Amino acid sequence: MAIVADHLGLSWTELARELNFSVDEINQIRVENPNSLISQSFMLLKKWVTRDGKNATTDALTSVLTKINRIDIVTLLE
């Protein structure tokens, strides 16, 4: 997760939308982690794993990252 969080940057909100997080949930992550995109990205991934449990797999994440054109991160995960 740390590799993904380190590289997402501003794309974390796009990833959040693709992972079916609501606008309110995205804003809450922003408010709770106001000074760091990496912290926002990491919190998103943590919430995703908590919410989706065993369905929050590397394959699922890779699929969504591909959908938002972040092949650079997919390559890092391989």
Score class of each variant (00 low, 15 high):
residue 1 M to Y: 15
residue 1 M to K: 06
residue 1 M to N: 11
residue 2 A to W: 15
residue 3 I to W: 08
residue 3 I to V: 12
residue 3 I to S: 06
residue 4 V to S: 03
residue 4 V to R: 01
residue 4 V to N: 04
residue 4 V to P: 01
residue 5 A to M: 00
residue 5 A to R: 05
residue 5 A to E: 01
residue 5 A to Q: 04
residue 6 D to Y: 07
residue 6 D to Q: 14
residue 6 D to I: 03
residue 6 D to V: 07
residue 6 D to L: 07
residue 7 H to Y: 06
residue 7 H to C: 04
residue 7 H to K: 13
residue 8 L to S: 01
residue 8 L to R: 02
residue 8 L to F: 06
residue 8 L to P: 00
residue 9 G to R: 05
residue 9 G to D: 05
residue 9 G to H: 04
residue 9 G to N: 12
residue 11 S to G: 08
residue 11 S to E: 07
residue 11 S to H: 04
residue 11 S to W: 00
residue 11 S to L: 00
residue 12 W to M: 02
residue 12 W to D: 02
residue 12 W to C: 00
residue 12 W to E: 01
residue 13 T to A: 10
residue 13 T to V: 12
residue 13 T to Q: 09
residue 14 E to K: 07
residue 14 E to Q: 13
residue 14 E to D: 12
residue 14 E to L: 07
residue 15 L to F: 10
residue 15 L to S: 03
residue 16 A to N: 02
residue 16 A to Q: 03
residue 16 A to W: 02
residue 16 A to V: 05
residue 17 R to W: 11
residue 17 R to P: 01
residue 18 E to M: 07
residue 18 E to Y: 04
residue 20 N to P: 00
residue 20 N to C: 07
residue 20 N to K: 09
residue 21 F to Q: 04
residue 21 F to R: 01
residue 23 V to E: 12
residue 23 V to N: 15
residue 23 V to D: 07
residue 24 D to A: 11
residue 24 D to Y: 08
residue 24 D to L: 08
residue 25 E to M: 03
residue 25 E to A: 06
residue 25 E to T: 07
residue 26 I to E: 02
residue 27 N to R: 11
residue 27 N to Y: 10
residue 27 N to D: 08
residue 27 N to G: 02
residue 27 N to M: 07
residue 28 Q to S: 11
residue 28 Q to W: 03
residue 29 I to V: 07
residue 29 I to P: 02
residue 29 I to E: 09
residue 29 I to H: 06
residue 30 R to F: 04
residue 30 R to S: 12
residue 30 R to E: 11
residue 30 R to T: 10
residue 30 R to M: 15
residue 30 R to H: 05
residue 30 R to Y: 12
residue 30 R to C: 11
residue 31 V to E: 10
residue 31 V to L: 15
residue 31 V to W: 10
residue 31 V to R: 14
residue 32 E to T: 10
residue 32 E to F: 00
residue 32 E to N: 12
residue 32 E to A: 12
residue 32 E to M: 11
residue 33 N to P: 02
residue 34 P to M: 04
residue 35 N to R: 10
residue 35 N to A: 08
residue 36 S to N: 12
residue 36 S to P: 01
residue 37 L to Q: 13
residue 37 L to C: 10
residue 37 L to M: 13
residue 37 L to I: 13
residue 38 I to H: 09
residue 38 I to W: 12
residue 38 I to N: 15
residue 38 I to G: 13
residue 39 S to Y: 04
residue 39 S to P: 04
residue 39 S to E: 11
residue 39 S to G: 12
residue 40 Q to S: 07
residue 40 Q to C: 10
residue 40 Q to E: 01
residue 40 Q to P: 04
residue 40 Q to D: 03
residue 41 S to N: 03
residue 41 S to I: 03
residue 41 S to L: 00
residue 41 S to P: 00
residue 41 S to K: 10
residue 42 F to P: 02
residue 42 F to I: 13
residue 42 F to A: 14
residue 42 F to T: 15
residue 42 F to R: 15
residue 42 F to Y: 14
residue 42 F to H: 15
residue 42 F to D: 15
residue 43 M to V: 12
residue 43 M to S: 14
residue 43 M to L: 10
residue 44 L to E: 01
residue 44 L to K: 07
residue 44 L to P: 01
residue 44 L to G: 01
residue 45 L to N: 02
residue 45 L to S: 01
residue 45 L to Y: 00
residue 45 L to I: 07
residue 45 L to A: 02
residue 45 L to R: 01
residue 45 L to E: 02
residue 46 K to S: 13
residue 46 K to H: 09
residue 47 K to E: 08
residue 47 K to V: 05
residue 47 K to Q: 09
residue 47 K to T: 10
residue 48 W to P: 01
residue 48 W to V: 01
residue 49 V to M: 11
residue 49 V to Q: 15
residue 49 V to W: 07
residue 50 T to A: 15
residue 50 T to C: 12
residue 51 R to A: 03
residue 51 R to M: 04
residue 52 D to R: 04
residue 52 D to M: 03
residue 52 D to A: 08
residue 53 G to P: 10
residue 53 G to K: 10
residue 53 G to H: 07
residue 53 G to V: 04
residue 53 G to L: 02
residue 53 G to W: 02
residue 53 G to C: 05
residue 53 G to I: 01
residue 54 K to V: 14
residue 54 K to M: 11
residue 54 K to A: 13
residue 54 K to L: 12
residue 54 K to D: 08
residue 54 K to C: 11
residue 54 K to E: 10
residue 54 K to Q: 12
residue 55 N to P: 04
residue 55 N to H: 12
residue 56 A to T: 05
residue 56 A to E: 05
residue 56 A to G: 04
residue 56 A to I: 07
residue 56 A to K: 09
residue 56 A to C: 08
residue 57 T to F: 06
residue 57 T to H: 09
residue 57 T to N: 15
residue 57 T to K: 03
residue 57 T to D: 11
residue 58 T to M: 15
residue 58 T to H: 13
residue 58 T to I: 15
residue 58 T to P: 09
residue 58 T to N: 09
residue 59 D to M: 14
residue 59 D to S: 10
residue 59 D to H: 12
residue 60 A to F: 11
residue 60 A to N: 15
residue 60 A to C: 11
residue 61 L to A: 03
residue 61 L to C: 00
residue 62 T to L: 12
residue 62 T to W: 06
residue 62 T to R: 15
residue 62 T to A: 14
residue 62 T to S: 15
residue 63 S to G: 13
residue 63 S to R: 13
residue 63 S to T: 14
residue 63 S to P: 10
residue 64 V to H: 15
residue 64 V to N: 08
residue 64 V to K: 07
residue 65 L to P: 04
residue 65 L to F: 03
residue 65 L to C: 05
residue 66 T to S: 09
residue 66 T to K: 11
residue 67 K to E: 05
residue 67 K to P: 04
residue 67 K to R: 11
residue 68 I to L: 08
residue 68 I to T: 00
residue 68 I to A: 01
residue 68 I to S: 00
residue 68 I to M: 08
residue 68 I to Q: 02
residue 68 I to N: 10
residue 69 N to H: 07
residue 69 N to Q: 12
residue 69 N to Y: 04
residue 69 N to C: 05
residue 69 N to M: 04
residue 69 N to T: 02
residue 69 N to A: 07
residue 70 R to M: 03
residue 70 R to Q: 01
residue 70 R to G: 00
residue 70 R to W: 02
residue 71 I to N: 10
residue 71 I to E: 12
residue 71 I to H: 09
residue 71 I to T: 13
residue 72 D to N: 05
residue 72 D to Y: 04
residue 72 D to W: 01
residue 72 D to M: 03
residue 72 D to E: 05
residue 72 D to V: 04
residue 73 I to R: 01
residue 73 I to K: 00
residue 73 I to W: 02
residue 73 I to S: 02
residue 74 V to H: 01
residue 74 V to Q: 05
residue 74 V to R: 02
residue 74 V to N: 03
residue 75 T to L: 14
residue 75 T to P: 08
residue 75 T to M: 13
residue 75 T to V: 11
residue 75 T to C: 11
residue 75 T to F: 08
residue 76 L to W: 05
residue 76 L to H: 12
residue 76 L to D: 07
residue 76 L to V: 14
residue 76 L to F: 08
residue 77 L to Q: 02
residue 77 L to Y: 03
residue 78 E to L: 07
residue 78 E to S: 11
residue 78 E to Q: 06
